[in-house]
Write a protein that binds this DNA or RNA. Structure first.
Length: 464
RNA sequence: CGGGGCAUGGCGCAGUCUGGUAGCGCACCUGCUUUGGGAGCAGGGGGUCGCAAGUUCGAAUCUUGCUGCCCCGACCA
């Protein structure tokens, strides 16, 4: 860490819609030049080296400023797409009462993965690994009529599962941030529509993060049927083997103006007609029969979401019923829909990096632009940088301005490591000609442009 | 939970076998020279050697117990 320049007064106008821009000399960005030995996979290494997270204990992490910004950007996309699909946001607690879980019968079933706690009165509590019981109780106590169905409620909250072996950094932590949604319908048929809404929302969510997530058939448990899918992104470091049809990789997510109230069966069928399965569900004969040889993909994948329809699994034992139009008591039909928000931060890096560091998609990048002053203290570069920094902020662009007195090479490699989509490089040579060098982190392409042209390029609509 | 490994300054490591009171690179501080892809020289600061007990004149080093962390496997968002 360096804190070179004297602090300058903070201008409230620097706050853009996504968050404040920053001078590196005043930021908290503890980067590591060498790889911590405990980190084996690339996303874990890069998150530690880029100063995004620090491990607190096995599978439990603090999110440092840079990582926190990414996490919040991912969360925001998840929220926007859940809202678009008609789900309603709320927030449930992390600590739950054991009695709630005894009611569904899961208190004894869940095993050692559940972190059990006793409060000062000797009451059994637990740190929630998920919230089916809690939401079912809330819903049961508040909803009595079929007229209040369907509903889909979601929250984004920290969960805890005491994994036997946490690993891969935030991809397989014990404490993790998860979006979980719960649908409530009168019939299984209606439940299918709720399920399909989430299916479509998930496709959009991952696409917005620059990911190609493929829905794959997952185990459905006692309910059976075709109502459970895992969303998997392909990555060499994925934890499980997956098999799918190559065409799925080319398919487009549904558009922003998708009508979620329309019949979504054709949409979902387009995605599920083609073979895609994790190793657990893999049927080699069917794979070979249905998928031409040149279209077969056998790869590794990271699960970034899981949707599941479970009918009355919780509503029946917990007595979650509504009165139907004919006066009969009907047991509510439910599904749950998870997205691993903190895991996605790691998964995106697994899918998008090179030997120099992270390559953020613009939608989740902690800052859009890294402004590099190659000669801090030089009147020419300082002046040009201050001007560009101010103008970018006014345009609502998030900038990380490297105003430190590090050497050029160190600044370049730091920017490459933290993976901001654009680097705007200001050096004495360029300033003489009124030019900046602008580098695209993903393509590596560099071009010299006038300050004006640079600003135009960076303030143009996002290009992903 | 089975198997393997590690624990010495913020990070990476040497020193442990053969006990003698801690060292290297990076990072950090000061000065000078440098300055477009991880600079050079000089001078500095920082470590209960994971914890506890034991052996010994003396323990990072030997013994015993404990703890934490990592990797492989079975399980999971």
């Amino acid at each position: 860490m360096r804190f070179h320049s004297p602090p300058s007064p903070r201008d409230p106008s620097i706050h853009s819609s996504k968050g404040p821009s920053m001078r590196l000399s005043q930021y908290f960005l503890p980067i590591l030049r060498e790889n911590p030995k405990e980190a084996e996979i690339v996303s874990h290494r890069l998150m530690l080296r880029a100063g995004m997270v620090r491990q607190s204990s096995a599978g439990i992490y603090s999110w440092l400023p840079l990582g926190h910004k990414v996490l919040m950007n991912i969360q925001r996309i998840v929220e926007e797409e859940q809202d678009r699909a008609g789900a309603i946001q709320m927030l449930m607690p992390t600590i739950q009462s054991a009695d709630l879980w005894r009611a569904s019968g899961r208190y004894d079933d869940y095993g050692k993965e559940m972190l059990r706690i006793t409060d000062r009165h000797g009451r059994d509590m637990l740190y929630g690994p998920t919230n089916e019981e809690q939401i079912t109780e809330i819903f049961r106590n508040s909803v009595k009529s079929y007229k209040d169905l369907p509903r889909n409620l979601y929250h984004i909250q920290w969960k805890f599962r005491d994994e036997i072996r946490p690993r891969f950094g935030v991809m397989r932590g014990r404490e993790f941030l998860m979006k979980d949604a719960y649908s409530f319908d009168l019939t299984a048929k209606d439940g299918r529509h709720s399920y399909q809404k989430m299916f479509a929302a998930y496709l959009r969510t991952y696409e917005r993060m620059g990911l190609k997530a493929i829905p794959m058939a997952a185990e459905t448990g006692p309910i059976g049927g075709d109502m459970s899918h895992e969303f998997i992104i392909l990555a060499d470091t994925g934890e499980s083997e997956v098999f799918c049809h190559r065409d799925l990789i080319e398919m487009q997510a549904p558009p922003a103006d998708l009508d979620f109230n329309a019949d979504l069966t054709p949409l979902v069928s387009r995605w599920t007609d083609k073979y895609a399965a994790t190793i657990e569900m893999h049927e080699p004969e069917r794979f070979e029969r249905e998928v031409p040889e040149d279209k077969r993909i056998a790869a590794r994948g990271i699960e970034v979401g899981h949707i599941f329809f479970f009918g009355d699994k919780y509503s029946d034992p917990m007595g979650c019923r509504v009165q139907g139009p004919d006066g009969a008591q009907l047991t509510v039909q439910s599904g749950s829909y998870g997205i691993g928000v903190s895991r996605l931060a790691g998964a995106i890096i697994e899918a998008s990096h090179d030997e120099d560091g992270i390559i953020w998609p613009e939608s989740v990048a902690p800052f859009k632009v890294g402004l590099i002053n190659l000669k801090a203290g030089d009147a020419g570069t300082d002046g040009a940088c201050e001007d560009l920094y101010g103008k970018l902020q006014k345009a609502g662009i998030e900038v990380l301005y490297d105003d430190t007195s590090e050497r050029a090479g160190a600044k370049f490699s730091t920017m490459d490591l933290i993976g901001l989509p654009w680097q705007l490089v200001i050096g004495p040579r360029g300033v003489k000609n009124g030019e900046a060098e602008i580098k695209n982190r993903r393509t590596g392409e560099k071009q010299s442009l006038s300050f004006e042209e640079s600003l135009n390029l960076l303030t143009a609509p996002a290009q992903g």
